[in-house]
């Protein structure tokens, strides 16, 4: 009852704040227009320099080169890359690694491709949780205690050696962030040359199509703050495997 009242008054407070903010928006934006010495622009301005230069937008590597470049970039920042032919190979790799490292807790995204790997069956000694499969669980804690997180990349970019993951009900942001080791499966057809080939989907899809979290991951977590010593893994996964499959 108390909580309910507190929540209600909080919602009311948020509404008050919003009303104040909307009122202020006008004066704030008008102030900017005044500084720019013209009335406020309401039509979308012509933006002749939108996005990357033309020469870049035409740039594209063949599949093998994308794989090679991604691999070289990812290795150079301390990540690991495996080139695997099939999802069965991916399953074998993940289970071997999990056994080798004696992983106790594994958390994976709730996706059919990962379901098909049947990690639960292949790793009887580990506890494999499926993200957000049970509303009673405190999922952030499940991810935080996990030794290994398993995800499927939505995209990857070879030029920068980046894996892109999008959040959803079935794809937790924590799964690629909190475990000590991250295993990211990249279906080879999702590996692009440039970041721009990925970003274009977000522009075209528009605001309403975007998930809450879009993350580009380009290697293991790193800090370089103690005498410039590269200290790996203070916050995010210190070990990252990119498994290029297909």
């Amino acid at each position: 009852m108390d909580m309910g009242t507190a929540n209600q008054s909080h919602q009311e407070w948020l509404k008050e704040m919003e009303a104040a903010s909307r009122a202020k928006q006008t004066s704030f934006i008008d102030g900017i227009s005044a500084k720019l010495r013209r009335p406020m622009v309401t039509e979308p301005p012509r933006h002749p320099f939108r996005g990357a230069p033309d020469f870049w937008n035409a740039y594209e590597w063949g599949e093998q080169e994308r794989i090679d470049r991604f691999t070289a970039n990812f290795l150079s920042v301390g990540g690991h890359v495996e080139r695997l032919a099939t999802m069965e190979d991916a399953q074998r790799f993940i289970t071997d690694k999990a056994n080798e490292l004696s992983a106790k807790y594994i958390v994976r995204q709730n996706q059919p491709e990962l379901e098909a790997l049947n990690l639960e069956g292949a790793l009887p000694d580990a506890q494999v949780s499926v993200w957000n499969s049970d509303p009673e669980q405190f999922w952030k804690a499940r991810a935080a205690e996990a030794d290994i997180g398993v995800v499927i990349a939505d995209y990857a970019a070879a030029y920068t050696g980046s894996i892109t993951v999008l959040s959803s009900k079935d794809k937790g942001r924590s799964v690629s962030l909190l475990p000590t080791v991250l295993m990211a499966i990249i279906p080879v057809e999702r590996l692009k040359t440039r970041l721009g080939e990925i970003m274009v989907h977000f522009d075209e899809g528009g605001r309403a199509s975007l998930p809450a979290g879009i993350h580009f991951i380009s290697g293991p977590s790193r800090s370089a703050d103690i005498e410039n010593d590269l200290t790996i893994g203070v916050h995010g996964p210190g070990v990252v495997y990119a498994l290029i499959v297909g």
């Binding site: 980046s162 605001r207 809450a212 879009i214 993350h215 380009s218």
Partner: peptide, 10 residues
């Protein structure tokens, strides 16, 4: 080439 993480929060 890119920071380890680049996040777009919507």
């Amino acid at each position: 080439k890119l920071t380890v993480y680049m996040s777009g929060i919507t």
